[in-house]
Design a protein around this nucleic acid. Structure first.
Lengths: 138, 138
DNA sequence: TTAATTAGAGACAACAAGAGTCTTTGATAT
DNA sequence: ATATCAAAGACTCTTGTTGTCTCTAATTAA
């Protein structure tokens, strides 16, 4: 069990976008180049992020993408849900006797896990990256 | 993203086995019947649980399966790892600039999630199931 | 208004993994 | 010996992921 590659690409893209000045946009070509991906494939991922309201898109010349929300408000879980949908970790389709009981226990564990992901902010990664880069300059 | 059906079957099987008296064994046929599965398919799952040391198998007449460890020592994560292997939720294959940093952040989130699953004991579910059954008898 | 540039949408193919079956082998109690 | 059980592995089928290609729609600049 692992998250899809698309989710990883999305997480990385969010980091790139966050490191951009708030006003400027960046195109798919450039973002795809950074991750060694085809622009068409990455655009599918970006569209999902756009529909989830995490980033904004501008078509036309000088168009591109930028972060939509307040940077400090975007968590891992936001990005994961945007790409994978609101899936259940445990999909208990087996109903026998006390089936619901088992399902409930699994759902509880799932909830606790999601809280962890919701507390992990993308902006923290960006901050760490920038600190590391700053150290390098010194 | 979700755990495989096999993991769900394994979790359910563990519950069934735990509700058995410590000394007695149960065969694949009966376990498969409980979950409406084919015995051959379930046996593949049971073999994984055996290799992981969570259950014990006895071949031959009067053979079958039973819990191997102390019941209170088996967590969700034990079962999940037995079936899915020790997989990583986030598989960061994209290396660019501060790639390692992003990967580390993801790994940290992953660790926190796994702690949750490791704290969720199968025996708790069994206890709840038995309490529910006891109430029904009254 | 036209041309260039950008995102969006959807069809499509290739590949990988999951789910499940079948058959054969090997161990054990009676 | 024989019936009964688990173990192992080859095999198929289905599903989902990954990725490409093409066409459309919107926006800016000239």
């Amino acid at each position: 069990m692992k998250y899809s590659n698309a989710t990883n690409y999305a997480l990385h893209t969010m980091v790139h976008l966050m490191r951009l000045p708030q006003t400027s946009t960046i195109g798919v070509q450039e973002l795809a180049e950074m991750q060694k991906l085809s622009p068409t494939y990455l655009s599918k991922i970006l569209t999902k992020l756009t529909k989830a309201g995490l980033i904004e898109s501008m078509t036309g010349v000088k168009g591109g993408y930028k972060i939509a929300r307040l940077k400090s408000r975007i968590s891992f879980l936001d990005v994961i849900n945007a790409i994978e949908g609101d899936t259940h970790l445990f999909d208990c389709s087996i109903h026998h006797g006390e089936g619901c009981l088992i399902e409930n226990a699994m759902r509880q564990a799932e909830e606790n896990m999601k809280v962890e992901l919701d507390n992990t902010l993308i902006s923290d990664i960006v901050a760490m990256a920038e600190t590391a880069q700053h150290r390098k300059r010194i």
